[in-house]
């Protein structure tokens, strides 16, 4: 019984940059681990060549995942990870793009690119971590922040209705739209594994915990409490409808695979010369 000293995911990480800068109990690391386990499986199956994978992130806590992974990676500017990935995959269609970002990066400042990449069904996987807040800059209101929540820029409570990215992307031409939670890492792994085997635009929203700058605003004192509060509210459903994608902290958050299509991807259309 030889003792191994390495974590099974170490080969996918840039170990000299671990530990991450994430706060204790941040859900992002859980999500990243689940994604790497799925990627590891696809690599060992021979479906994915790790040399052809690249990760892109814009700006924000989530985006920084890209420099912790032992792959080609781009840590670009705020909101522009999707167009960067578009250029790379169209220039070399052998490449596999994994875009990661927070809801501010992907759906806020980058929202227009999200809409049009989904409409074009461009070949990439976008994993958006929704933590309901702008975390890196200190807890300002985000496009996904629920109504009435007090943040550093909504001290009297958020007056706005939040954006629902699953409904938005699902209404377009994306081949895959799913939602999981950091409290269900096995679903993140399962959905990401499936996405890695598909073509076209694949979108996974991961509801995450930000114990440091969001949890505190809503009165949750520590990472475990926030994790458990989110876990209580998350409900898996088999093939839920887009209507069921509504995020309601009181009524619960439905996770599952909302959309699964096999529409020709942008690259497939370019290659086939289809109009």
């Amino acid at each position: 019984m030889a003792i191994t000293y390495t974590h099974p995911l170490d080969k996918h990480l840039r170990l000299e940059r671990i530990p991450t800068l994430y706060c204790p109990g941040c859900g992002l690391g859980i999500g990243l681990g689940a994604m790497l386990r799925a990627l590891d499986k696809r690599i060992s199956e021979g479906v994915i060549d790790p040399r052809k994978v690249f990760w892109v992130g814009g700006i924000g806590c989530t985006a920084r995942m890209v420099f912790y992974v032992n792959y080609d990676a781009a840590h670009v500017i705020h909101g522009r990870s999707i167009p960067f990935a578009i250029g790379a995959v169209l220039a070399n269609p052998e490449l596999k793009a994994i875009v990661v970002g927070g809801d501010g990066d992907i759906a806020g400042i980058g929202g227009n690119h999200l809409v049009h990449a989904a409409r074009r069904n461009i070949d990439m996987i976008v994993v958006m971590f929704t933590n309901f807040v702008y975390a890196m800059t200190g807890g300002q209101v985000a496009p996904t922040t629920p109504r009435k929540v007090k943040t550093t820029t909504t001290p009297y409570g958020n007056p706005e209705y939040p954006m629902n990215a699953v409904k938005l992307v699902g209404s377009l031409n994306a081949n895959y739209v799913a939602r999981a939670s950091v409290t269900t890492p096995h679903y993140i792994e399962q959905f990401f594994y499936k996405a890695l085997g598909m073509s076209g635009f694949r979108f996974i929203e991961v509801v995450s915990t930000c114990p440091e700058v969001y949890g505190r605003h809503i009165g949750l004192r520590d990472p475990v409490e926030m994790y458990n509060e989110l876990k209580k509210r998350v409900k898996y459903k088999h093939k839920p409808s887009l209507e069921e994608a509504e995020i309601d902290w009181e009524k619960g958050i439905v996770i599952g695979e909302f959309i699964e299509r096999n529409n020709p991807s942008f690259i497939e259309i370019l290659r086939g010369g289809q109009a």
Partner: peptide, 15 residues
């Protein structure tokens, strides 16, 4: 192992 955000815990089968 799956819920550790920092890749700090891992489980192995023995024997």
């Amino acid at each position: 192992e799956y819920n550790c955000p920092d890749f700090a815990v891992f489980i192995e089968k023995v024997g």
